[in-house]
Design a protein around this nucleic acid. Structure first.
Length: 555
RNA sequence: UGCCCGAUAGUAUAAUGGUAGUACGACAGAUUUUGGUUCUGUUUGUCUUGGUUCGAAUCCAGGUCGGGCAACCA
């Protein structure tokens, strides 16, 4: 029964390499720089790299590309490991580019000996000026033809700390007039007298990305090195180092990074949101970070499914955030426990319900999985909370909910008719007065009455209260990065805090990791960071699709 | 006015010279004690101009449009 599943272009390459014998195994790697938190775009890369290997019984390394100690930190290392694990992936080896510093140093010496690298005394500005432009060839450095011996000595001196930051660099001797700017004698090593989060003060010279990444891939025996499109122009240099060094020839392939509507995805911009206080931190539930989405209540499966559905290509793309929401609803619909929660309470009094009487109603925990979900008891009484927006004094067209004279079903309970309502001095409705139909009890309804609307409710006497946080998109334009400062497009109402939502009593037992559907409202889960004993906080992961909102918009 | 990459419904993504399909969205309907879910149906597409071919989304050439490249970042 295997369904015909088409391969993306990378899967095709790998399958083809295996088939032709160009590769005998598949070994990929996920190579984050530990200078920020992982986001949904990284999830695409993670799923791709682990998926590519997994499809063929291969392995995937987790490698930290930690060649720039100025911006990197172990805090990020830990968060990245936690996020990859949470997404459901196990790496083969945990690697660090910094583990290869001695080897990389030897590689550099080897290139010097071959006359393919030289120490340059030029300043950063001089090098930039001599680099030329894409349309104007560069000029060769006066240091370009130093002897091998002198280069070796100088490079050694760089390593032993004889020079200050920026005083010298090691450059590859390639072609200053190459149409590819990356081939114009790229810098291999720079001097940085700074503490590295792993190697401490052992080194004061650090390799550039280009002089570390390909060799790291090669040293680990990576067969297919997958990265994003902006590295495409680096590939000739990647291959040049490998060829000149004569080491295992990893091949690099590029794909288009993920973009999503109403979202920014660059680490730089996300860092800005964190540092300038527009959000609560990297794990703010509004952030597209893995940690933010986890806190928000996203499931790993929903993220993996999303990554599967968006596909992989080389063209620029911007994915509708609605697809992400679809994926999480799809997963949560299957697993979430249904609960009665009123976010914006309005009192309902059932005038003909015997005073002081209570009943217990049976309610399904999950109609999508009746066998596993079971049922629970729901206390009912003559005084309830209902959702304010479920009552309209002057009903709209096609309004199926409460209005003067209208009947609705209280879910899992009785049918009620709205007889009257009470307003305060400000003209706000503060109470709805209804009568119930005793023979309409859920499961034993003999009333013969058909109602079009069913609403949720919570019995007032037994209700518990808790904070609920409603999140909306962080930006109010589809492409915040399109023009101008992206921060101008922040959605001012991306967070709505409800301090006193009323909930059915079973919610007192909510535990971290539980997923709930607050009936008719959306999917929610406990915020593990903000909740403490006696003060639970629930985050809205995503709303339910709202058919009425759509209908109402039509007018 | 250099080099590299790309272009299929609104958004993604298939079709690998042989009927342009799928998902999300939108629209319409059925079911429903969640205006949820589920189900059914409809709608919308090969950037352009030539060429090769019995036949082109696919191969070739020109054009157009979009993206990337000039950090001692990755």
């Amino acid at each position: 029964m295997s369904e015909e599943k088409s391969l993306n272009f990378l899967e095709e390459i790998v399958a083809d390499d295996l088939q032709t014998g160009r590769s005998t195994n598949v070994h990929t790697r996920f190579p984050p720089e530990p200078n920020g938190y992982l986001h949904i775009g990284h999830a695409k890369s993670i799923c791709l790299n682990f998926g590519l290997a997994d499809d063929h019984g291969g392995k995937t390394n987790l490698r930290f590309d930690d060649t720039n100690p100025v911006t990197e930190d172990t805090e990020y290392v830990e968060s990245i490991k936690a996020d990859v694990r949470w997404l459901g992936f196990d790496w083969e080896h945990e690697c660090y580019a910094s583990d290869y510093f001695p080897k990389l140093y030897e590689f550099a010496c080897a290139l010097i000996r071959k006359g393919l690298a030289y120490v340059d005394d030029s300043s950063s500005e001089e090098i930039a000026a001599a680099k030329g432009t894409p349309t104007v060839p560069g000029r060769e450095s006066p240091c370009r033809n130093r002897s091998v011996t002198e280069n070796l000595e100088l490079f050694e001196a760089m390593k032993t700390g004889a020079f200050r930051d920026g005083e010298k660099v090691l450059r590859a001797k390639i072609d200053m007039s190459s149409p590819n700017m990356h081939m114009r004698d790229p810098i291999m090593y720079r001097i940085r007298h700074v503490h590295h989060h792993r190697t401490g003060d052992t080194w004061c010279i650090y390799p550039m990305y280009d002089f570390a990444h390909g060799q790291s891939d090669s040293l680990e025996g990576i067969t297919h090195s997958v990265c994003t499109l902006e590295f495409e122009v680096h590939r000739p240099l990647y291959n040049w180092y490998i060829a000149k060094l004569g080491i295992f020839p990893t091949r690099q392939f590029e794909f288009a990074r993920l973009n999503m509507t109403y979202t920014v995805m660059s680490k730089r911009k996300l860092l800005q949101l964190v540092q300038e206080g527009f959000v609560d931190g990297w794990d703010d539930p509004r952030m597209p970070t893995i940690s933010g989405m986890r806190r928000r209540g996203y499931t790993p499966l929903s993220i993996r499914n999303f990554c599967d559905r968006i596909g992989v290509q080389r063209r620029e793309n911007i994915i509708d955030v609605g697809l992400l929401e679809f994926c999480v609803r799809e997963d949560l619909n299957r697993i979430a426990l249904r609960r009665m929660v009123v976010l914006d309470p309005l009192k309902m009094v059932i005038t003909n319900y015997p005073a002081g009487q209570t009943e217990e109603m049976d309610a399904e925990n999950n109609p999508e999985a009746p066998d596993q979900g079971g049922t629970r008891k729901l206390p009912f009484s003559g005084e309830l909370w209902i959702e304010r927006e479920d009552f309209m004094e002057v009903p709209a067209k096609k309004w199926f909910r409460l209005a003067p004279g209208a009947v609705v079903r209280l879910k899992n309970a009785y049918i009620v008719r709205c007889d009257d309502f009470v307003k305060n001095e400000q003209g706000e409705v503060i109470e709805i007065r209804c009568s119930y139909i005793p023979e309409s009890r859920s499961g034993q309804d003999t009333s013969g009455i058909n109602v079009k609307g069913t609403i949720h409710w919570v019995s007032a006497a037994t209700a518990i209260r808790a904070e609920v946080r409603l999140y909306d998109r962080l930006f109010n334009v589809e492409d915040p990065s399109a023009e101008g400062d992206f921060k101008n497009f922040l959605n001012p109402s991306s967070l709505d805090i409800i301090s006193q939502a009323v909930m059915e009593p079973s919610m007192a037992e909510a535990a971290p990791g539980d997923r709930f559907q607050f009936i008719r409202k959306g999917y929610f889960s406990l915020d593990e960071k903000l909740s403490h004993s006696g003060h639970p906080v629930f985050n809205r992961t995503v709303t339910l699709k709202d058919g009425w909102a759509k209908e109402a918009k039509k007018g």
